[in-house]
Design a binder for these strands. Structure first.
Length: 463
RNA sequence: UCCUGGGUAGCUCAGUCGGUAGAGCAGGUGACUGUUAAUCACCCUGUCGGGGGUUCGAAUCCCUCCCCGGGAGCCA
């Protein structure tokens, strides 16, 4: 391990008068009479460390005065209180070593703000910016917090398959995984012959770990998955990715009410964790990305999520006197504009909508006693919309069979799933949280492509 | 995929009535300065997204394709 300090620690502990060493990248250089100011960022925090480089240093003219944005350096010296405003401490350099130059005529990152659209074109360089670096730290922190929340509550972390042959998930279009020669595709009855493929059958990238999670839930109790998820939908929006990360808890002996409780506690825990551990990042986002961010996050913690059933939502939308582009009718899905109105204008906080008509929801959701709705819930947050979708699962064998048939699905495909109901079935429930949407919510970033390091979207997969 | 707005200097954008392109920032040079979006002066920079068409003449008008933003659908 190098003897260098990370800047986050130096700023926090302020070891004045001590010899320290840092390694990082030059953000900017400003020259004064007899010395230069260097701003160094090492990725450990939002803040740069200001370095004073006197002209008496070796190679001052040849190297230090040539330092520009992007150069990688090692600097040792003494940490001192800063006499000027803007920073508490600064580093009086005694040695400056340049690891790598960055030709200012060609280096794309300038000492100014860039549009996120432009930064997307330089995926390999954008984490060197303040905001994308901050997103990376927030993402890492929240990822840890996800595990901490569930581990603290005794959940078991489960790795569900990324390559799956269960073609019965119905959550969206799937990517096929194959080693077949696409230039000379073996066919049978005109269709690709997957019997000759690597797995001897068609395999796809997972669209959800839920069904597999149910298997372990009904053996070990509460479990959660946290892994990549793939949807081959031609979705072109600021909140859809073809490859994204999803967290899916599945809880045994759990009903919809408890499911909602856990989901609400989970989101609040993550928001609180971000406020406690990424305050500088959230400050940055509030100042430069979304002025309302901090207030909104505080409001999330301050009150209970609003709760409303689908039927109540329809009533409210019908009687609110507002005209929508899409008409409101019981039995049809809520449109984006309906959800936004309820969440952002009526309740002005996260909103849980529950008990949707069974006709618009998948087969595995538990049918309510009214026989027309299912025990499903969506959590909507202001600015983003749906961030969680969940339900109590149908644990009754007969009901599940008729739901599978009702939806025109192929019963034999579900034998293993039905076994879970044949033998020792139990009430259980779960939900899926879109990790990137959560990061959008906590960072205020408008486009989901900024909150994942390497976004995959239709027509775009850089690196 | 649909609707809509865009694509002009490294970046962000302006460009009138169709007459062959401009600003700020960045970059270079110099001055000045415990500076911090430093300041001041000077200098450099163009496949006007690609292709086709109309015209004496197209960044500008028409057709077409590509790419990007915003909205919608699908969902997390």
């Amino acid at each position: 391990m190098s003897p260098s300090s990370r800047i986050v620690q130096l700023i926090k502990t302020q070891p004045l008068g001590q010899a320290v060493e840092i390694r990082g990248w030059v953000r900017t250089r400003r020259d004064s009479k007899g010395f230069s100011f260097l701003e160094i960022n090492d990725g450990s925090c939002v803040a740069n460390l200001q370095v004073i480089a006197e002209e008496s240093l070796p190679r001052y003219e040849e190297e230090i005065l040539r330092l520009t944005t992007g150069c990688a350096v090692r600097i040792s010296g003494q940490l001192a209180a800063s006499p000027a405003r803007g920073q508490a401490v600064e580093l009086k350099a005694s040695e400056v070593e340049v690891y790598g130059w960055a030709d200012p005529e060609k280096y794309p990152l300038q000492k100014k703000r860039h549009s996120f659209e432009f930064l997307r074109e330089i995926t390999h360089l954008r984490p060197r910016t303040n905001s994308l670096g901050a997103v990376a730290r927030l993402r890492s922190a929240l990822s840890f917090a996800v595990h901490r929340f569930f581990q603290e509550q005794g959940f078991l972390h489960l790795h569900t398959p990324i390559i799956t042959t269960s073609d019965c998930e119905g959550a969206g279009e799937m990517f096929t995984v194959t080693t077949l020669d696409l230039n000379n595709l073996p066919r049978k009855d005109g269709r690709p012959d997957f019997n000759q493929d690597f797995f001897g059958r068609q395999a796809n990238l997972t669209v959800s770990g839920q069904l597999e999670a149910e298997i372990y839930c009904l053996a070990l109790g509460n479990v959660y998955t946290f892994g990549p998820t793939f949807r081959a939908e031609n979705s072109n929006t600021s909140r859809h990715l073809a490859e994204f990360w999803m967290i899916e808890p599945e809880m045994a002996f759990c009903d919809l009410a408890q499911d909602m409780q856990v989901a609400e506690a989970f989101i609040k825990y993550l928001v609180q964790y971000a406020l406690d551990n990424c305050s500088d990042e959230i400050e940055l986002f509030t100042n430069f990305v979304d002025k309302g961010l901090k207030g909104r996050l505080a409001a999330v913690l301050a009150q209970d999520f609003a709760r409303i059933t689908y039927s109540e939502a329809i009533d409210r939308l019908k009687t609110c006197g507002k005209t929508f582009n899409f008409s409101v009718a019981w039995g049809t899905d809520l449109q984006s504009e309906h959800e936004r109105y309820l969440c952002e204008e009526v309740f002005k906080r996260p909103l849980i909508v529950s008990d949707y008509p069974k006709s618009i929801k998948p087969f595995y959701m538990r049918v309510n006693d009214d026989n027309t709705t299912v025990a499903a819930m969506d959590i909507l947050v202001p600015g983003i919309g749906e961030i969680i979708g969940g339900s109590q699962r149908e644990e009754r064998y007969d009901r599940l069979v008729s739901r599978i048939k009702e939806q025109g699905l192929n019963l034999p495909d579900y034998e293993w799933y039905l076994d879970l109901r044949r033998y020792g079935t139990a009430p259980h429930a779960g939900f899926g949280l879109g990790f990137e949407r959560l990061i959008q919510f906590v960072s205020g970033m408008a486009n989901i492509r900024e909150v994942i390091p390497f976004p995959r979207t239709p027509g775009s997969a850089s690196l």
